[in-house]
């Protein structure tokens, strides 16, 4: 062995080993890489636009396998921008964050919330802007928020929280009840969805022109389901859908759709449901999504 090696310059066997090793490992690495990406353990390389946008330090971190560290740093940075209401900086920072960690749900939720709720709200009360400019920015920001949400759902198709945040933008800012209904409608069948989402689906469907019958059928179904299970009240799995809004909405729909009296639901019992609980406003910023 030694004799053979001594005959030739040493770089020949070294280069040979590197090449052979490379040829063997490349297909294996390729398959491992795609398996790791498939199982979301590895993130696919970010799109080139992101690469261009990243500052040098962030780039180094990402290359060094420190994406999450960079993401944490950027999150703190975004928070700073948020503090001084630099909305465009907040958005561009979150753009980077979500491309670094596209599978981290709360980044997306924050991004939609900042764009669709905070930025929009701040525009609404900004007296320095002309009414036309206010309107322009309002439209721009809220539409952008929805687009962000759609991009988010591509990454996390089963996310309840992203839909919830999108629904809030539809509901509170765009006043697009059909959009809100669509979000709640998708949410209600997802694992981890709150029980109210199925009712909210009905409420907003009722406000979406042309869908009154569909909304009525859905809400009436919930009502009947609750009534037929009343004997199981208190047990696990029993859901009391007879919330005040449901009763009120059903009543309104009965009127609107001219439902025969015999098929209408009874007026609510004074003790059932209509007591309004004292609801605090949601904790801000971020935190648990409160409908």
């Amino acid at each position: 062995m030694r004799a053979i090696l001594e005959k030739y310059p040493r770089w020949i066997p070294i280069v040979a080993v590197i090449l052979v090793f490379g040829l063997i490992r490349t297909p294996i690495e390729k398959s491992l890489r795609s398996q790791l990406i498939e199982t979301h353990l590895l993130q696919p390389p970010p799109a080139r636009t992101t690469l261009g946008a990243l500052k040098q330090s962030s780039l180094m971190g990402m290359l060094g396998g420190l994406r999450s560290m960079v993401a944490v740093y950027l999150t703190l940075k975004a928070y700073e921008h948020f503090g001084v209401m630099e909305w465009d900086e907040v958005e561009s920072t979150y753009d980077l964050i979500t491309s670094l960690e596209p599978r981290e749900e709360f980044h997306w939720v924050h991004r939609i919330w900042h764009r669709g709720i905070n930025a929009v709200a701040s525009v609404e009360v900004n007296d320095d802007l002309t009414p036309a400019e206010r309107q322009r920015r309002f439209d721009l920001y809220s539409t952008q928020a929805i687009e962000i949400g759609e991009a988010a759902l591509e990454q996390l198709p089963n996310s309840v929280k992203i839909r919830e945040q999108m629904a809030e933008v539809y509901r509170e800012k765009l006043r697009d009840y059909c959009g809100a209904a669509k979000m709640y409608g998708e949410m209600k069948d997802l694992p981890g969805a709150m029980q109210y989402s199925t009712r909210f689906y009905g409420y907003f469907l009722a406000k979406c022109p042309g869908n009154e019958q569909k909304a009525y059928d859905h809400l009436y179904g919930l009502y009947v389901e609750t009534m037929s299970n009343l004997d199981r009240k208190g047990e696990r799995g029993f859901v009391d859908h007879r919330a005040p809004t449901l009763i009120i909405t059903l009543k309104e729909l009965e009127e609107k759709l001219d439902i025969p009296i015999s098929q209408r639901i009874p007026d609510p019992h004074p003790d059932e449901g209509l007591k309004r609980r004292n609801r605090p406003t949601g904790r801000l910023p971020g935190g648990v999504g409160i409908p």
């Binding site: 040829l23 690495e29 890489r33 790791l36 199982t39 353990l41 993130q43 599978r103 981290e104």
Partner: peptide, 19 residues
């Protein structure tokens, strides 16, 4: 063939994200 693919060894990042 020449340069090692170090990126695939960063799969811990997915694990701590909860995958």
């Amino acid at each position: 063939i020449i340069v090692p693919d170090y990126q695939i060894f960063s799969f811990y990042e997915g694990i701590i994200l909860g995958e």
